[in-house]
Design a protein around this nucleic acid. Structure first.
Lengths: 360, 360
DNA sequence: TACGTTAGGGTAACCGGTTACCTCGTAGAG
DNA sequence: CTCTACGAGGTAACCGGTTACCCTAACGTA
């Protein structure tokens, strides 16, 4: 039997050190310690030094719960997205977290799966209340749910335009972007364009807007979209994109281009074209939406719409931080900030040079 | 001039409602209210009903900072990863968040960029102290930093084996996985295998382990790896993978296979092969590591090593929650849980059937 | 009838920062 | 040399749940 050490040699004490302990050690009051840690200007250098010494000697670390309780703020914000594994939201979260860090905020990520019930729950959950505000990218909410968005805390909505009501939101140019992509395909001489991806009719998501932009562009060219060329996919993933593309082809629809409502759908579709031996863009041109990194490196690389993701993230965080500072709840009426999209032409539609073949 | 309503019709009061308010309204004490919200068993149904009614009438919501202060726990954990935009970490985070939610925890995501200084900072930052524990996937830390990991809070390390010291960690089979991938390439008759991706010699990351597994497999077949076939890429992204591959080819190295130290490197490399007109796997077979979703849909699909990501995430969260419950700090000595990797053969190395060509 | 036991619920101290308000000391003005 | 003003820092109330400790009522048993 070997001896069991009762007290392991820890570098920080197991019993938490409080401001009072520091104050006692430094021979000052808690107010002074607070002044020092919060960098309040009117503190004598000598006093400050004594306090800092005491802090490091005792290994003092501030208790954030106590600070939050007293301040009424936590220094955290919630980011609610459908799924982090979807590249668009991963990249968005990356940027939101980075910008929030710049502004001194920590981000709590919540995943809704794009499911309406869970989205509604995020708005009212107790968890949300741990943070000072919410950046919310809804997918399953319906226009009828608009009133649920009139919450009593700072809220910024992302990516949608339809749900606005009177809530602050940062929107992307879904209609314009989709229209640009469709026009680009039409310019390349494509006429039998399939759409991969669908949406809940009752919803107010990007799907309806992108589809509208697409349809309008076709209509402007006197073309009516053949519904047989629509590959249904409510969930926007590579897998569902591939399934949708497969269904369109198996239906015998004649297709010379594909517009994916987002990039992963387009990539899934492209994979099926590859499996069927159809050349991209030789036989079928493909375009997507989102400009995720994968599309820059796919073979062929994917023509897409860059929705201004970085801009959206930055704007949303700054707006939210501003709302928090002003103590403005969501119900108070909202600004709409629209970020302009940009078409990025790559190999999957013939490349910038317009040649019909992917480079060998 | 139209009248300005002083009080907008909000559904929840601007002035927070406390437990005391609820208690007064329900005609009970705060203890009883607390008993009800915490589902303490010994409460009369009638009393419970009265309290619940008061809660909903007043729109009471609990103050988490207060609860955390008094409980000494926050119900949050920190997850520190290099970058969320890297698919592996996006998928890992997705799973960690989901599993943590099952266990009643909320996740605060911190990005280190894989930079040593920021990784060290995460370990000691005030921010970290807002949470009950840390799941940490380090990249830039060196063996010499091992002592920094002996912190006084629950900590679970991810993905590495070299740094263990006495800290709990969930490791993946880096060496075995890489060895399996290399053996697979050798079995397919490839002998001139390039490696894409490199690592800081002073580091203790996955890079050295995967490289070791690879080199060992070659050695077992009596082959020595030609350093001219190594494409340096300290940062593991598609872009750096492409650059590394380009350098290897421009160096005039003769290559019939590529092993990417992770999938994005491999995909970046595959993109360059595509640009050069080299067929995969006809001319060059490609294998990666991580089994990110992109590789299942790339053209051709990517042979890879599935490191057991879901298992790792689940194990890490359960372990951490357990440590929190037992109040066990990181310095107390650590278990190592190793998750076994699995080789997944796809088209980029000739597919499961072993044919040398990608399917048309 | 007396007494022990337990369920239900009240009271108040406590968690650890923040800050309104107050005091003291000193430098500059008159 | 006194008065004012301001800078430095102390005191204690407060933020809103939690919970140790206590009391009461009701039930069962001898």
């Amino acid at each position: 039997m070997r001896p069991v050490p009762i007290e392991t040699s820890r570098r920080w004490p197991a019993v938490p050190v409080t401001m009072r302990d520091v104050a006692r050690r430094a021979g000052v009051s808690v107010k002074t310690v607070s002044n020092v840690v919060n960098e309040f200007p009117h503190v004598t250098p000598a006093t400050r030094a004594r306090v800092l010494a005491a802090i490091s000697e005792l290994g003092y670390r501030m208790n954030f719960s106590a600070r939050s309780l007293s301040l009424g703020r936590t220094g955290m914000i919630t980011l609610a997205v459908p799924e982090l594994r979807l590249p668009y939201f991963a990249e968005l979260s990356d940027e939101v977290i980075a910008v929030a860090a710049e502004r001194g905020y920590t981000v709590l990520v919540e995943q809704t799966g794009g499911v309406r019930e869970r989205e509604l729950e995020v708005l009212t959950s107790d968890r949300r209340r741990m943070t000072d505000g919410l950046i919310f990218s809804p997918l399953g909410l319906r226009p009828a749910d608009a009133r649920s968005l009139e919450v009593d805390y700072p809220l910024v909505l992302l990516g949608e335009r339809a749900l606005h009501g009177s809530v602050h939101h940062v929107a992307m140019g879904n209609v314009e972007g989709a229209r640009a992509a469709a026009e680009h395909l039409l310019e390349r001489g494509r006429r039998r364009i399939a759409v991969v991806g669908s949406y809940d009719e009752r919803g107010a998501g990007a799907g309806s807007l992108r589809t509208r932009g697409f349809t309008e562009a076709l209509a402007d060219s006197g073309i009516e979209h053949d519904p047989r060329r629509t590959g249904e996919a409510l969930e926007w993933t590579r897998t569902t994109g591939a399934q949708a593309m497969r269904r369109v082809l198996e239906r015998g629809a004649d297709v010379d281009a594909v517009f994916g409502l987002n990039d992963v759908l387009a990539l899934g579709a492209m994979r099926v074209l590859f499996e069927r031996g159809l050349r991209v863009p030789g036989d079928v041109a493909v375009a997507g939406f989102d400009d995720i990194e994968d599309g820059r490196f796919s073979c062929p690389s994917l023509t897409t719409v860059q929705p201004g993701r970085a801009q959206i993230a930055r704007t949303a965080v700054w707006l939210l931080v501003d709302l928090i500072a002003r103590g403005e709840p969501a119900g108070a009426g909202g600004r709409e900030l629209v970020v302009a999209p940009e078409l990025i032409v790559r190999e999957s539609t013939g490349g910038p040079d317009g040649s019909g073949d992917a480079p060998k």
